[in-house]
Simulated assay, not measured.
Amino acid sequence: MRLSRPFQDVSTMNTLLNTAEDLALEAGEPMPGPEHLLLAALRLPDGTARRAFGRLGADPDAFGAAVARVHAEALAAAGVRVADEAALDTEVARNRSPKRGAMRATAPAQEAFQAATRHARTDRSPLLGAHVVAAVAGLEHGTAPRALRAMDIEPAALGEAARAELAA
């Protein structure tokens, strides 16, 4: 992959991927998914991911809670009832996998990350949070699109907002 600004892009990629992995591990998940990439993009210092949400009048800080709510609803639909949140936190901590070298991610997260880097190359821009937002918003299925819809955000509209932020 040819990068527009190699050192800046590598730094952003490291920050993005490491943060996504940390967020997944904190949630008790062995590998980050697209929702973790989006949460990590919202923490990038360039601010473009947060501004993309803002273009829709949406609170970017509400995305994490929406992800948690979608996960809880999925567990409930599967018949899993969590009566004691402290017990769940203990169980998650017990089952947390430590980091093991190169980052691993779910196939949809890898797809979203590759799409984000392609967007950056096409734009001849450094990799920015809004590239990740646009890529994740392009996914049809999974936790991230369900969480966005739970926030009353249509993923396609968020993708358009991210592209508008990149064009600004």
Rank of each mutant, 00 (worst) to 15 (best):
G159Q: 13
Q110L: 11
G64L: 05
P126K: 01
V82M: 01
V136H: 05
A105V: 11
R69W: 06
P155S: 14
R51L: 13
R100I: 03
A150F: 10
F7G: 05
S97L: 13
N14W: 10
G129D: 07
L88C: 09
A130D: 03
D9R: 02
P45D: 14
Q8N: 05
E35C: 02
L128M: 12
D9S: 03
L42P: 04
A65T: 07
E91T: 13
R146W: 05
R43W: 03
R96F: 08
M13L: 14
I153G: 01
H141R: 14
A93H: 10
T19Y: 00
D46E: 12
P30G: 07
R94T: 05
A58C: 10
F7T: 10
L17I: 15
L128N: 01
A41K: 00
G28M: 02
P30Y: 04
L44W: 04
A116H: 01
P34Q: 06
V136T: 10
R104M: 09
A83Q: 11
A68I: 04
P34R: 00
A49N: 02
A144Y: 07
R51F: 10
S4I: 14
S11T: 15
T122L: 13
G101V: 12
F63K: 07
R163C: 01
P34I: 01
A27V: 09
L3A: 10
A135P: 15
L17V: 15
A66I: 12
L158T: 05
E21S: 06
L42G: 00
L128A: 13
L3P: 04
R163V: 08
A156N: 03
P98I: 08
R104E: 11
A68M: 05
T122M: 08
E85P: 06
P32K: 03
P34E: 02
